[in-house]
């Protein structure tokens, strides 16, 4: 019985997946990802039904009936009407003018430069470590000081909970980074974060277009040590740790 309904079950499953993705997930899934998911769903259903001869025969039976003229006349007319209407609707959706801003393909984690200029001094990114952490000394005091620096400078955008939801956050596109997100600072080495803080939006490389980050160039307002202290705090305050490598590390083979 179930086998005979293969085509209709496949159709219902596709619809159910679409409904679930549209209605059950909040905030809504962006159209680009929804397209990927629905494409994968369609491929998966087609692969599954055609991977077994009996399923496949039952799946194409209703289609064969329509296109070979064996289905009732009304069904054939309905199918032939739906095909151009669906094409027309898809075309309309594609070309209809919209007031929405265009898609933005922005590189979130652009590659850091090999070196950067901080207060006129050239700093090599390779091998760069937080000097406060590197000393192995007690971190409580610099973290406390970093917290003060954070609240005096960063808090307004990155928020009280370091979740990128400060008072000014919604005024920016892109909005400020959420340090509690596993995909932000916990994926990065401290040298990377230092680069982003010290050079801000103006220091983004070519690949990070469009250069619309509102992050200030903090080296214009903070000393190098203050930046490192703030970095210590954002890791400690968000409960994350910087990315590190094991002892064999990089340039030992050079």
């Amino acid at each position: 019985m179930m086998l005979r309904l293969t085509f209709w079950l496949a159709l219902a499953l596709y619809g159910a997946v679409y409904a679930a993705l549209r209605l059950a997930i909040h905030p809504p899934i962006p159209a680009s990802v929804l397209t990927i998911y629905m494409l994968l769903t369609a491929i998966a259903i087609l692969v599954f039904v055609s991977a077994d001869e009996r399923r496949f025969t039952q799946f194409i039976a209703p289609l064969a009936a329509v296109f070979e003229g064996r289905a009732p006349r009304a069904a054939r007319i309905a199918v032939l009407a739906v095909i151009p209407l669906a094409a027309a609707w898809a075309t309309y959706v594609r070309v209809a003018p919209s007031a929405d801003a265009p898609f933005e393909l922005r590189v979130i984690h652009p590659e850091p430069p090999s070196s950067l200029s901080v207060h006129g001094r050239r700093v090599e990114i390779a091998g760069l470590q937080n000097p406060l952490r590197a000393k192995g000394s007690e971190l409580d005091k610099p973290i406390r000081e970093g917290k003060t620096i954070y609240y005096q400078n960063c808090f307004f955008c990155h928020g009280d909970a370091l979740a990128g939801d400060g008072h000014f956050a919604q005024a920016f596109r892109p909005i400020p980074a959420n340090f509690r997100d596993v995909g932000t600072i916990s994926m990065l080495q401290e040298s990377y974060v230092f680069w982003r803080v010290a050079t801000g939006g103006a220091g983004l490389p070519k690949s990070a277009t469009p250069w619309n980050s509102a992050m200030p160039v903090w080296q214009d307002f903070l000393t190098e040590e203050e930046i490192w202290k703030a970095i210590l705090y954002i890791y400690a305050g968000s409960g994350s740790t910087p990315r590190t490598w094991d002892d064999e590390v990089k340039h030992d083979k050079h």
Partner: peptide, 12 residues
């Protein structure tokens, strides 16, 4: 890849 409206809804 998201539109401005979608990004606002997602918070980034």
């Amino acid at each position: 890849i998201a539109t401005g409206v979608e990004m606002a809804a997602m918070g980034g």
